[in-house]
Amino acid sequence: MTSAEDAASVASLDKTPRTARGRKTLRALLDAAASEFGERGFHEASISAITRRAGVALGSFYTYFDSKDAVFRALVTDLSAQVRDHVAPAVRAAGDGIAAERAGLAQFIGFVREHKEIYRIIDEAEFVDPDSFRSHYASTAERIDQRLRAAAMRGEVRSDVSDVHAWAIMGMNVFLGLRFGVWNEDRSVEDVADLAASLLRHGLMPEDL
């Protein structure tokens, strides 16, 4: 499923748009919700502010969503899909398992620099909609786990990779994205990705041991 298809599927039950115009309006609402929740947080955000940002009538919101909670839940799913689709082509094009993780991190930090609001939204999801929060991270870790296991089968990484390794890599990526994507852009994406890839490839053991 592509991010466009994901966007069309996140409306409230029985409100999935069936026309191109409807999908365009839904996309505008989700983008406006990202800006509103990202700037004001869930509790201060309002449906009327989202529709003003989207440039649509207030009534149009309820064509797609039942509540503020519903659009927030849809937004978490949508952002997760956007990250997945942004990262996937570079990961697929990588030469080996470590290169794939390097490419994924580089693309993720690049995405974060253009969508800094993602961290506030995902963090709030832990309390606003714990199921979406958990699903976001669980699905991300599962994709990494699948990549690592495939790389292990090809002999590119150690044979005993597991979900622990996948969650560790994801945790590293999350905090590198926060530090070098949101807080400060004082190092190049390529430099950060290279150092992280070196850590994965060689670990922290001194080179002479």
Score class of each variant (00 low, 15 high):
residue 4 A to T: 14
residue 8 A to E: 12
residue 9 S to R: 14
residue 9 S to N: 15
residue 11 A to T: 15
residue 12 S to C: 11
residue 12 S to G: 11
residue 13 L to N: 11
residue 19 T to W: 07
residue 21 R to F: 08
residue 21 R to Q: 15
residue 23 R to H: 15
residue 26 L to T: 12
residue 27 R to P: 04
residue 27 R to L: 15
residue 31 D to W: 03
residue 34 A to P: 01
residue 35 S to G: 12
residue 36 E to C: 10
residue 38 G to F: 03
residue 42 F to P: 06
residue 45 A to P: 08
residue 46 S to F: 02
residue 48 S to M: 02
residue 52 R to W: 03
residue 54 A to P: 10
residue 60 S to V: 13
residue 63 T to E: 13
residue 72 F to C: 02
residue 75 L to Y: 06
residue 76 V to N: 03
residue 77 T to A: 12
residue 79 L to H: 00
residue 82 Q to S: 02
residue 85 D to H: 05
residue 85 D to W: 01
residue 86 H to I: 05
residue 87 V to D: 06
residue 90 A to P: 07
residue 92 R to Y: 02
residue 94 A to C: 02
residue 98 I to A: 05
residue 101 E to I: 13
residue 103 A to D: 11
residue 104 G to C: 09
residue 110 G to T: 10
residue 111 F to S: 04
residue 124 E to M: 11
residue 127 F to Q: 13
residue 128 V to T: 09
residue 129 D to Q: 06
residue 131 D to T: 14
residue 133 F to D: 09
residue 138 A to K: 12
residue 138 A to L: 14
residue 138 A to M: 12
residue 143 R to I: 00
residue 143 R to P: 04
residue 147 R to Y: 04
residue 150 A to E: 14
residue 155 G to D: 07
residue 156 E to V: 10
residue 159 S to G: 05
residue 159 S to C: 00
residue 163 D to Q: 12
residue 164 V to T: 13
residue 167 W to Q: 11
residue 169 I to R: 09
residue 169 I to F: 04
residue 173 N to E: 06
residue 174 V to Q: 01
residue 174 V to S: 08
residue 175 F to D: 11
residue 179 R to V: 07
residue 182 V to G: 06
residue 183 W to Y: 10
residue 187 R to F: 06
residue 187 R to M: 11
residue 192 V to M: 04
residue 195 L to D: 06
residue 198 S to Q: 09
residue 198 S to L: 10
residue 203 G to M: 10
residue 204 L to D: 01
residue 209 L to N: 08
